[in-house]
């Protein structure tokens, strides 16, 4: 009896709090379908009187959304591909090949993870400026594709793969590169998926990188585009929310498809 009452209570609490957490999304979606004048109504109207789907058409004419989306997709895909490729390759060196100096080198990788990015963003900027790469996509690709985090995540996973597998392959005459490509990579699909999804989402959502490095409107990502739209037309509430919905939508789709890998990636990076 008391157990079932407690259960019911926990349920009510959970539902209530979760709804509260989801309110901002509800507001975002409902406002994106209203007229500007209807967004701030008293009392709050959670379901629009009339659904103005046309907002989702108009916005493409108001802002160069296609350019922004194309830039975001290009940066996210390139950075993710490079990160996964070089990260898993380097992780094999750290986890499966024994050679002098390896552990010191790995310590240097780990050490930089603990340093806040803001502490070295100025030297980074100076290097990019001297190289003439400020205001290019290449600057962001170089900055984000070789992160220590990716190497760390993949190495942790490779350590859980028994060495006997690579030993056996070595006896069969497979080279180290062959072992990486044919044995380890296929076995580490879940970790690769985690790293790819986390990197993609981080790059897609990144604001500071593009904000610092990209000044040319043609190079802007969806985040910069949305921010600038808010700055220019701060009274067009509905249109701002339409843009927000569109910027979040791709992430929602990716998240729902790969949820399992997100959770696993976070749990791995957190607790090992």
């Amino acid at each position: 009896m008391t157990a079932s009452v407690r259960r019911a209570l926990a349920y009510v609490l959970l539902v209530g709090l979760s709804v509260a957490v989801l309110v901002p999304f509800a507001w975002m979606v409902s406002s994106s379908l209203k007229l500007d004048a209807e967004v701030f109504s008293v009392p709050v109207r959670w379901i629009p009187v009339e659904f103005h789907w046309s907002n989702f058409v108009t916005i493409w004419e108001r802002v160069p959304l296609l350019t922004y989306l194309r830039n975001s997709v290009f940066l996210s895909v390139t950075i993710t591909a490079l990160q996964v490729l070089t990260g898993s390759f380097a992780a094999y060196g750290f986890a499966k090949v024994r050679f002098p100096g390896r552990d010191v080198l790995f310590l240097a990788y780990i050490g930089t993870i603990a340093v806040p990015w803001q502490a070295y963003m100025v030297p980074q900027y100076v290097i990019m400026e001297k190289a003439g790469l400020v205001n290019t996509h290449l600057s962001l690709i170089l900055l984000q594709a070789f992160s220590a985090f990716g190497v760390f995540l993949m190495r942790q996973y490779y350590l859980t793969i028994p060495d006997e597998l690579s030993e056996a392959a070595r006896l069969d005459g497979l080279s180290e590169y062959g072992i990486w490509a044919r044995i380890i990579l296929p076995l580490s699909k879940p970790a690769l998926a985690s790293l790819a999804l986390l990197t993609f989402v981080n790059t897609w959502n990144d604001y500071m990188g593009p904000f610092i490095y990209l000044t040319d409107n043609k190079l802007w990502t969806i985040q910069l585009g949305l921010r600038s739209f808010v700055g220019l037309y701060d009274a067009e509430y509905a249109m701002i929310m339409t843009g927000s919905v569109l910027s979040v939508l791709p992430i929602l789709v990716i998240f729902l498809l790969g949820q399992k890998y997100f959770v696993r990636g976070i749990a791995t990076s957190g607790l090992k």
Binding site: L85, T86, G87, F89, A90, Y92, G93, F94, V97, L105, Y109, T112, L142, A145, F146, S147, A148, G150, V151, E176, W180
Partner: peptide, 9 residues
């Protein structure tokens, strides 16, 4: 193995 990542890092 490490070099491609290390150069950028």
């Amino acid at each position: 193995f490490i070099l491609p990542n290390f150069l950028g890092f």
